[in-house]
Write a protein that binds this DNA or RNA. Sequence first.
DNA 1: GTAGATGCAAAGTATTTGCGACAAG
DNA 2: CTTGTCGCAAATACTTTGCATCTAC
Lengths: 137, 137
Amino acid sequence: MSETIEQKCEAKGVKLTDQRKVIARVMSGHNEHLDVDDLYSRVSKIDSKISIATVYRTVKLFEESGIVTKHEFKGGKARYEKLMKDDHDHLIDIKSGEIIEFVDDEIEELQKKIAAKYGYELVDHKLELYGKKKNHK
Amino acid sequence: MSETIEQKCEAKGVKLTDQRKVIARVMSGHNEHLDVDDLYSRVSKIDSKISIATVYRTVKLFEESGIVTKHEFKGGKARYEKLMKDDHDHLIDIKSGEIIEFVDDEIEELQKKIAAKYGYELVDHKLELYGKKKNHK
DNA sequence: GTAGATGCAAAGTATTTGCGACAAG
DNA sequence: CTTGTCGCAAATACTTTGCATCTAC
């Protein structure tokens, strides 16, 4: 929320080439969860010479540097999201595909507790809820 | 735990061909989370004429019939697991890849509550914890 | 026969990589 | 120069499909 991806790259010592800047800006400018195709088509409008290989290489680099997060939701391509400070999870509308982000401390705590119970330290987690909109009467 | 995959097929009206029987038995006989390659190589030892296309078609059929569950863990191929009565989640050892199953009612409840909070009825969920083994002193 | 199942190879996706060209220090 | 990046096309990995054949009713 506070920092742009470009700023994070500097902070992490990730070299910012022209191509990477374009990709970083597109990702910073969207709150959505973009897949590589989305990203590539948006990036292409800004600089049509950027290849999809570079987009793949860049998102991978950003992910490995801890600048963006990769999601592999059900059935399909990987989606990337800029890293937020809060560690949110996702509620996915199975009808529309709409993605709702949420944070729930209680569930985070519970997860740590469960991992600990089995003798593990929680390093990462993935929680996705798939739901159907209730018809509110 | 109680029923074999073959029994479930009968119950659900899924026709059991010879190939499907072999695949069903291999899956029933393993508590692991097998990917299609694992499955194919084990199945091949029993009947080498079964093609990988049939394995793919069969696991898909089983999944759509609610007989097995498909998991898409980080980084890679889909894995299949026979459906259990309890709705367990997974704790994955990031070092060894070992998968631990667990059930936690509290977390299940919490998930329903969160979905409801956003006006959704929980249809499905995915919870994966990635952990590092604590060095027990 | 008819409908569905299978084997095979070909086609599809999503993603990665080899390599020569290019860019920056 | 040297190191890293890029664009392109080819390669890879996983999965699906078209089609002719086979099977079971």
